[in-house]
Amino acid sequence: MNLINHESVVKRMKPRLSKNSISKWIFFALTMFVLLILGVLLYRIFSQGLGYLDLQFLQSLPSRKPENAGVYAALIGTIWLMAVVAPVSLLLGVGTAIYLEEYAKENAITNFIKVNISNLAGVPSIVFGLLGLTVFVRALAFGTSVLAAGLTMSLLVLPVIIVASQEAIRAVPNQLREASFGLGATKWQTIVRIVLPAAIPGILTGGILALSRAIGETAPLVVLGMPLFLAFLPKTFFDMITVLPLQIYNWTGRPQAEFHALAAAGIIVLLVMLIIMNSIAVLIRNKFQKRY
Protein backbone atom coordinates (compact mmCIF):
# COMPACT_ATOMS: atom_id res chain seq x y z
CA MET A 1 0.00 0.00 0.00
CA ASN A 2 1.28 3.42 -0.82
CA LEU A 3 1.01 5.62 2.26
CA ILE A 4 2.54 8.66 0.61
CA ASN A 5 1.10 10.02 -2.57
CA HIS A 6 4.37 10.82 -4.25
CA GLU A 7 2.87 12.99 -6.94
CA SER A 8 1.04 15.29 -4.57
CA VAL A 9 4.13 15.70 -2.42
CA VAL A 10 6.19 16.71 -5.43
CA LYS A 11 3.43 19.04 -6.53
CA ARG A 12 3.33 20.72 -3.15
CA MET A 13 7.09 20.86 -2.76
CA LYS A 14 7.61 22.73 -5.97
CA PRO A 15 6.21 26.13 -4.99
CA ARG A 16 7.85 25.90 -1.61
CA LEU A 17 11.23 25.16 -3.13
CA SER A 18 10.96 27.91 -5.71
CA LYS A 19 9.85 30.33 -2.99
CA ASN A 20 12.95 29.29 -1.09
CA SER A 21 15.36 29.93 -3.91
CA ILE A 22 13.68 33.16 -4.99
CA SER A 23 13.73 34.55 -1.47
CA LYS A 24 17.35 33.58 -1.07
CA TRP A 25 18.21 35.70 -4.08
CA ILE A 26 16.10 38.57 -2.82
CA PHE A 27 17.87 38.55 0.54
CA PHE A 28 21.21 38.34 -1.22
CA ALA A 29 20.34 41.15 -3.62
CA LEU A 30 19.21 43.48 -0.82
CA THR A 31 22.41 42.81 1.13
CA MET A 32 24.46 43.55 -1.97
CA PHE A 33 22.37 46.68 -2.52
CA VAL A 34 23.63 48.07 0.80
CA LEU A 35 27.22 47.35 -0.19
CA LEU A 36 26.58 48.85 -3.61
CA ILE A 37 25.41 52.09 -2.01
CA LEU A 38 28.62 52.26 -0.01
CA GLY A 39 30.51 51.82 -3.27
CA VAL A 40 28.51 54.53 -5.03
CA LEU A 41 28.96 56.90 -2.10
CA LEU A 42 32.72 56.42 -2.05
CA TYR A 43 32.99 56.61 -5.83
CA ARG A 44 30.95 59.82 -5.97
CA ILE A 45 32.98 61.53 -3.28
CA PHE A 46 36.36 60.46 -4.61
CA SER A 47 35.57 61.33 -8.23
CA GLN A 48 34.25 64.72 -7.16
CA GLY A 49 36.91 65.63 -4.64
CA LEU A 50 40.16 64.11 -5.84
CA GLY A 51 40.72 66.97 -8.28
CA TYR A 52 40.92 69.47 -5.43
CA LEU A 53 42.95 67.27 -3.14
CA ASP A 54 46.59 68.29 -3.18
CA LEU A 55 49.21 69.59 -0.79
CA GLN A 56 48.00 73.12 -1.29
CA PHE A 57 44.51 72.06 -0.16
CA LEU A 58 45.96 70.60 3.03
CA GLN A 59 48.08 73.66 3.75
CA SER A 60 45.69 76.51 2.99
CA LEU A 61 43.32 78.36 5.23
CA PRO A 62 39.69 78.57 4.12
CA SER A 63 39.02 81.23 1.55
CA ARG A 64 36.12 82.75 -0.29
CA LYS A 65 37.76 81.72 -3.54
CA PRO A 66 37.40 77.97 -4.06
CA GLU A 67 40.76 77.59 -5.78
CA ASN A 68 42.62 79.07 -2.77
CA ALA A 69 40.60 77.33 -0.07
CA GLY A 70 41.99 74.56 2.08
CA VAL A 71 41.41 72.56 5.22
CA TYR A 72 44.50 73.54 7.18
CA ALA A 73 42.59 75.37 9.93
CA ALA A 74 40.08 72.55 10.19
CA LEU A 75 42.78 69.88 10.36
CA ILE A 76 44.64 71.70 13.11
CA GLY A 77 41.31 72.30 14.87
CA THR A 78 40.47 68.61 14.71
CA ILE A 79 43.84 67.77 16.28
CA TRP A 80 43.26 70.32 19.07
CA LEU A 81 39.83 68.83 19.66
CA MET A 82 41.34 65.35 19.92
CA ALA A 83 43.92 66.68 22.39
CA VAL A 84 41.06 67.51 24.75
CA VAL A 85 38.73 64.61 24.05
CA ALA A 86 41.30 61.80 24.26
CA PRO A 87 42.63 62.38 27.82
CA VAL A 88 39.31 63.52 29.32
CA SER A 89 37.16 60.76 27.90
CA LEU A 90 39.76 58.03 28.51
CA LEU A 91 40.28 59.04 32.15
CA LEU A 92 36.57 59.27 32.87
CA GLY A 93 35.65 56.23 30.81
CA VAL A 94 38.32 53.87 32.11
CA GLY A 95 37.78 55.10 35.68
CA THR A 96 34.08 54.37 35.40
CA ALA A 97 34.74 50.95 33.90
CA ILE A 98 37.20 50.02 36.66
CA TYR A 99 34.73 51.16 39.28
CA LEU A 100 31.85 49.20 37.78
CA GLU A 101 33.84 46.03 37.15
CA GLU A 102 36.17 45.90 40.15
CA TYR A 103 34.71 47.88 43.02
CA ALA A 104 30.97 48.37 42.61
CA LYS A 105 28.69 46.25 44.75
CA GLU A 106 25.51 44.80 43.37
CA ASN A 107 23.14 47.47 44.59
CA ALA A 108 20.63 50.02 43.41
CA ILE A 109 23.21 52.76 42.83
CA THR A 110 25.38 50.54 40.61
CA ASN A 111 22.35 49.40 38.71
CA PHE A 112 21.26 53.00 38.23
CA ILE A 113 24.69 53.95 36.88
CA LYS A 114 24.56 51.07 34.39
CA VAL A 115 21.04 51.87 33.18
CA ASN A 116 22.03 55.52 32.96
CA ILE A 117 25.04 54.75 30.75
CA SER A 118 23.01 52.70 28.30
CA ASN A 119 20.40 55.45 28.10
CA LEU A 120 23.05 58.12 27.66
CA ALA A 121 24.29 56.25 24.60
CA GLY A 122 20.87 56.75 23.01
CA VAL A 123 20.60 60.49 23.56
CA PRO A 124 20.84 62.37 20.22
CA SER A 125 24.17 64.16 19.81
CA ILE A 126 22.46 67.50 19.28
CA VAL A 127 21.07 67.34 22.83
CA PHE A 128 24.65 67.06 24.12
CA GLY A 129 25.23 70.26 22.17
CA LEU A 130 22.45 71.97 24.14
CA LEU A 131 24.00 70.71 27.40
CA GLY A 132 27.41 72.01 26.34
CA LEU A 133 25.96 75.36 25.30
CA THR A 134 24.37 75.90 28.71
CA VAL A 135 27.03 74.40 30.97
CA PHE A 136 30.38 74.90 29.25
CA VAL A 137 29.82 77.88 26.95
CA ARG A 138 27.56 79.96 29.23
CA ALA A 139 27.65 78.81 32.88
CA LEU A 140 31.38 78.03 33.07
CA ALA A 141 32.07 80.83 30.54
CA PHE A 142 34.49 78.84 28.38
CA GLY A 143 32.92 80.52 25.36
CA THR A 144 33.07 78.84 21.98
CA SER A 145 36.50 77.42 22.73
CA VAL A 146 38.44 74.22 22.14
CA LEU A 147 37.82 73.41 25.78
CA ALA A 148 34.02 73.71 25.60
CA ALA A 149 33.90 71.69 22.38
CA GLY A 150 36.26 69.04 23.72
CA LEU A 151 34.40 68.57 27.00
CA THR A 152 31.05 68.32 25.21
CA MET A 153 32.47 65.73 22.83
CA SER A 154 34.05 63.83 25.73
CA LEU A 155 30.66 63.45 27.40
CA LEU A 156 29.16 62.38 24.07
CA VAL A 157 31.63 59.53 23.49
CA LEU A 158 31.90 58.53 27.16
CA PRO A 159 29.40 55.63 26.89
CA VAL A 160 31.37 54.10 24.00
CA ILE A 161 34.62 54.09 26.00
CA ILE A 162 32.94 52.87 29.18
CA VAL A 163 31.30 49.89 27.46
CA ALA A 164 34.49 48.93 25.57
CA SER A 165 36.65 49.23 28.70
CA GLN A 166 34.14 47.24 30.75
CA GLU A 167 34.26 44.42 28.22
CA ALA A 168 38.06 44.50 28.14
CA ILE A 169 38.32 44.42 31.94
CA ARG A 170 35.71 41.69 32.21
CA ALA A 171 37.67 39.56 29.73
CA VAL A 172 40.69 39.45 32.06
CA PRO A 173 40.39 36.03 33.72
CA ASN A 174 39.88 35.92 37.46
CA GLN A 175 42.81 33.54 37.97
CA LEU A 176 45.17 36.42 37.21
CA ARG A 177 43.59 38.56 39.93
CA GLU A 178 43.60 35.67 42.39
CA ALA A 179 47.23 34.87 41.67
CA SER A 180 48.10 38.53 42.26
CA PHE A 181 46.19 38.60 45.55
CA GLY A 182 47.83 35.32 46.50
CA LEU A 183 51.24 36.89 46.10
CA GLY A 184 50.22 39.59 48.54
CA ALA A 185 49.30 42.39 46.17
CA THR A 186 46.59 44.79 47.23
CA LYS A 187 43.49 45.45 45.18
CA TRP A 188 44.75 48.67 43.62
CA GLN A 189 48.15 47.09 42.84
CA THR A 190 46.35 44.20 41.18
CA ILE A 191 44.25 46.57 39.08
CA VAL A 192 47.13 48.78 37.99
CA ARG A 193 49.75 46.10 37.40
CA ILE A 194 47.72 43.06 36.37
CA VAL A 195 44.22 43.92 35.16
CA LEU A 196 44.87 47.15 33.26
CA PRO A 197 47.91 45.91 31.29
CA ALA A 198 45.92 42.86 30.24
CA ALA A 199 42.93 45.00 29.29
CA ILE A 200 44.82 47.77 27.53
CA PRO A 201 44.35 46.52 23.93
CA GLY A 202 40.57 46.41 24.35
CA ILE A 203 40.53 49.80 26.06
CA LEU A 204 42.67 51.41 23.35
CA THR A 205 40.52 49.92 20.60
CA GLY A 206 37.40 51.34 22.22
CA GLY A 207 39.14 54.64 22.80
CA ILE A 208 40.17 55.02 19.18
CA LEU A 209 36.69 54.12 17.96
CA ALA A 210 35.23 56.71 20.33
CA LEU A 211 37.72 59.30 19.16
CA SER A 212 36.87 58.61 15.54
CA ARG A 213 33.23 59.19 16.42
CA ALA A 214 34.19 62.49 18.06
CA ILE A 215 36.05 63.86 15.05
CA GLY A 216 33.15 63.00 12.73
CA GLU A 217 30.41 64.62 14.80
CA THR A 218 29.03 67.91 13.57
CA ALA A 219 25.73 68.71 15.24
CA PRO A 220 26.88 69.39 18.84
CA LEU A 221 29.58 71.77 17.63
CA VAL A 222 27.12 73.71 15.50
CA VAL A 223 24.87 74.10 18.55
CA LEU A 224 27.81 75.27 20.66
CA GLY A 225 28.24 78.04 18.09
CA MET A 226 31.62 76.94 16.78
CA PRO A 227 32.53 78.95 13.68
CA LEU A 228 31.99 77.26 10.30
CA PHE A 229 34.52 79.56 8.72
CA LEU A 230 37.72 80.42 10.52
CA ALA A 231 40.86 81.82 8.98
CA PHE A 232 43.22 81.61 11.95
CA LEU A 233 44.69 78.87 14.11
CA PRO A 234 44.09 78.34 17.84
CA LYS A 235 46.92 79.11 20.26
CA THR A 236 45.40 78.14 23.62
CA PHE A 237 42.58 75.90 24.78
CA PHE A 238 40.37 78.97 25.10
CA ASP A 239 40.58 79.88 21.42
CA MET A 240 37.96 79.19 18.79
CA ILE A 241 38.46 76.33 16.40
CA THR A 242 36.72 74.95 13.40
CA VAL A 243 36.94 71.25 12.62
CA LEU A 244 36.73 69.15 9.47
CA PRO A 245 33.01 68.26 9.65
CA LEU A 246 32.10 71.91 10.23
CA GLN A 247 34.24 72.99 7.30
CA ILE A 248 32.57 70.34 5.12
CA TYR A 249 29.15 71.50 6.31
CA ASN A 250 30.02 75.07 5.43
CA TRP A 251 31.10 74.13 1.90
CA THR A 252 28.12 71.81 1.39
CA GLY A 253 25.76 74.64 2.29
CA ARG A 254 26.99 76.87 -0.55
CA PRO A 255 25.24 76.70 -3.89
CA GLN A 256 28.32 76.74 -6.16
CA ALA A 257 29.54 73.42 -7.54
CA GLU A 258 33.18 74.33 -6.81
CA PHE A 259 32.46 74.43 -3.12
CA HIS A 260 30.73 71.06 -3.34
CA ALA A 261 33.92 69.68 -4.87
CA LEU A 262 35.84 71.24 -1.99
CA ALA A 263 33.43 69.59 0.44
CA ALA A 264 34.09 66.26 -1.27
CA ALA A 265 37.83 66.82 -0.96
CA GLY A 266 37.34 67.64 2.74
CA ILE A 267 35.32 64.46 3.15
CA ILE A 268 38.16 62.45 1.62
CA VAL A 269 40.55 63.93 4.19
CA LEU A 270 38.11 63.11 6.99
CA LEU A 271 37.53 59.55 5.73
CA VAL A 272 41.27 58.94 5.36
CA MET A 273 41.76 60.07 8.97
CA LEU A 274 38.99 57.72 10.11
CA ILE A 275 40.41 54.82 8.09
CA ILE A 276 43.86 55.35 9.60
CA MET A 277 42.46 55.46 13.13
CA ASN A 278 40.33 52.38 12.59
CA SER A 279 43.25 50.46 11.09
CA ILE A 280 45.32 51.34 14.14
CA ALA A 281 42.50 50.03 16.32
CA VAL A 282 42.34 46.77 14.35
CA LEU A 283 46.14 46.45 14.46
CA ILE A 284 46.22 46.92 18.23
CA ARG A 285 43.44 44.40 18.66
CA ASN A 286 45.15 41.80 16.51
CA LYS A 287 48.68 42.33 17.77
CA PHE A 288 48.23 42.68 21.50
CA GLN A 289 45.14 40.67 22.19
CA LYS A 290 46.20 37.80 24.44
CA ARG A 291 43.96 34.81 24.69
CA TYR A 292 43.87 33.29 28.13
Binding site: L91, Y99, N119, P159, W188
Partner: peptide, 30 residues
Protein backbone atom coordinates in the same frame (compact mmCIF):
# COMPACT_ATOMS: atom_id res chain seq x y z
CA UNK B 1 50.29 53.00 49.63
CA UNK B 2 47.42 52.33 51.99
CA UNK B 3 46.05 55.79 51.38
CA UNK B 4 45.84 55.22 47.63
CA UNK B 5 44.21 51.92 48.41
CA UNK B 6 41.50 53.66 50.42
CA UNK B 7 41.05 56.73 48.21
CA UNK B 8 40.94 55.08 44.80
CA UNK B 9 37.45 53.55 45.10
CA UNK B 10 36.06 57.00 45.86
CA UNK B 11 37.92 58.68 43.01
CA UNK B 12 36.73 55.99 40.63
CA UNK B 13 33.21 56.39 41.95
CA UNK B 14 33.45 60.10 41.16
CA UNK B 15 34.39 59.35 37.56
CA UNK B 16 31.44 56.99 37.36
CA UNK B 17 29.26 59.74 38.77
CA UNK B 18 30.17 61.98 35.82
CA UNK B 19 27.98 59.93 33.50
CA UNK B 20 25.08 60.26 35.92
CA UNK B 21 25.77 63.98 36.29
CA UNK B 22 25.69 64.28 32.50
CA UNK B 23 22.19 62.84 32.39
CA UNK B 24 21.09 65.05 35.28
CA UNK B 25 22.72 68.01 33.54
CA UNK B 26 20.89 67.30 30.31
CA UNK B 27 17.52 66.93 32.02
CA UNK B 28 17.95 70.01 34.25
CA UNK B 29 19.27 72.17 31.41
CA UNK B 30 16.37 71.26 29.18
Amino acid sequence: GGITEKIMPYILFLTAAVSVLTTIGIVLTL
